[in-house]
C-alpha cells in the first residue's frame, strides 16, 4: 500500500518563543516575515509524529511504500531526515510564489497525489507550529474526496479499513474508516525515532524528486495572503508576594486572593 506523509518545514517554535519572551522577535522589512537567521528550522513536530505512525504501520507488518512530500523550495535537509528514518521516497514541490498560502499548498499536494496514483493513507500533522492553522489536511481531503480523521495517536490496519484512535477533549475515541483516508497526528503519538549514524550518512546521498507547480498544472488556488505579522503586547502587572518562609508566603497569597475577591 501507498502512504503519503506531508511534512512542513517550520521555524523552531521554542526559539521563536524565547525571542518573543525577551522582546527580540524581529519582523522583516516586508512587515510579515520572521527574519532572524539565528532561529533554526526543522520539520514540524506533528509531521515527525505522522511519519512515525507510518513507520509503525510498517513495523506492524503492513507492506507499504512511504512517500514523504513537502511544499517549498530547498527542503533537502528535512527530506533527508525523513529518508534516514525510513521514508522510501522523498519529494519537494516548488510553488510559484515562495509565500504560498494554505489553499495553494493543499492544491499542490492534492494534485501531486492525484498524479502519482491513488493513496491508501495520507498522514499529516494536526497543525503546523508556525501558522497553527490546521487546515491543509482538510483542504487536501476535500480535494481528493477522502474522509478526514483528525488528532489521532494510533492507526491500525484491519483488512481494507483502519481503526484510528483519536484524542478528543472527552478522552480517547476509536473510529473506523473504510478505504483511503487523510489522518492528522498529534503529539500523543509519542517520540519519533532517530536515525542511526550509518543511515544518516547514507541519506546524505539521496536527493529529493523536485516537482514544480507548473508540472502539476496548479495555479490560481490562492485565497488568502499574509499581509502583516506582529508581536502582540502583553500587559505586565505582576505583584510579587514575598515572605520569610513558604508558610508565610502561602498565607499571604491566599489572603490577597480573598481581598481581591478572586477567591470567595
Amino acid at each position: 500500500m501507498k502512504i503519503y506523509v506531508f511534512v512542513k518545514r517550520v521555524l523552531d517554535p521554542d526559539a521563536v518563543n524565547n525571542y518573543a519572551l525577551v522582546g527580540k522577535l524581529e519582523i522583516g522589512a516586508d512587515g510579515r516575515s520572521l527574519t532572524q537567521t539565528a532561529i533554526p528550522d526543522l520539520m514540524n513536530a506533528y509531521d515527525e509524529q505522522a511519519l512515525e505512525v507510518a513507520l509503525r504501520l510498517r513495523d506492524a507488518g503492513t507492506e507499504c511504500t512511504i512517500h514523504v512530500v513537502t511544499v517549498g523550495a530547498d527542503r533537502t535537509a528535512i527530506l533527508r531526515h525523513a529518508a534516514s528514518i525510513g521514508a522510501d521516497e522523498i519529494s519537494e514541490i516548488v510553488p510559484e510564489d515562495p509565500e504560498v498560502d494554505v489553499h495553494t499548498t493543499a492544491a499542490l499536494l492534492a494534485a501531486f497525489v492525484r498524479q502519482k496514483g491513488t493513496p491508501d493513507l495520507v498522514l499529516c500533522g494536526r497543525q503546523a507550529s508556525d501558522d497553527d492553522q490546521g487546515v491543509v489536511p482538510a483542504l487536501v481531503a476535500e480535494a481528493l474526496g477522502l474522509p478526514l480523521v483528525n488528532v489521532a495517536k494510533a492507526i491500525e490496519k484491519h483488512g481494507d479499513s483502519y481503526r484510528v484512535t483519536r484524542v478528543t477533549p472527552d478522552g480517547d475515541e476509536i473510529v473506523a474508516v473504510e478505504g483511503a483516508a487523510v489522518v492528522t497526528l498529534s503529539n500523543e503519538v509519542g517520540d519519533p525515532r532517530y536515525p542511526t549514524a550509518a543511515k544518516k550518512l547514507k541519506a546524505r546521498r539521496v536527493s529529493p524528486e523536485v516537482v514544480t507547480a507548473s508540472d502539476l498544472g496548479v495555479s490560481g488556488a490562492t485565497r488568502t495572503k499574509l499581509v502583516q505579522q506582529f508581536v502582540p503586547d502583553v500587559e505586565q502587572n505582576c505583584e510579587f508576594i514575598e515572605g520569610a518562609s513558604p508558610a508565610e508566603i502561602a498565607d499571604r497569597l491566599i489572603e490577597r486572593l480573598r481581598e481581591d475577591r478572586v477567591l470567595p
Binding site: L11, P13, D130, D132, T224, K225, Q229
Partner: peptide, 15 residues
C-alpha cells in the same frame, strides 16, 4: 489570527 501559539499575530487578506 494568532500564530506561533500566540507569540505573533498574522493579518490575512482574503483575495
Amino acid at each position: 489570527a494568532s500564530a506561533f501559539g500566540g507569540d505573533t499575530r498574522g493579518v490575512y487578506e482574503f483575495t
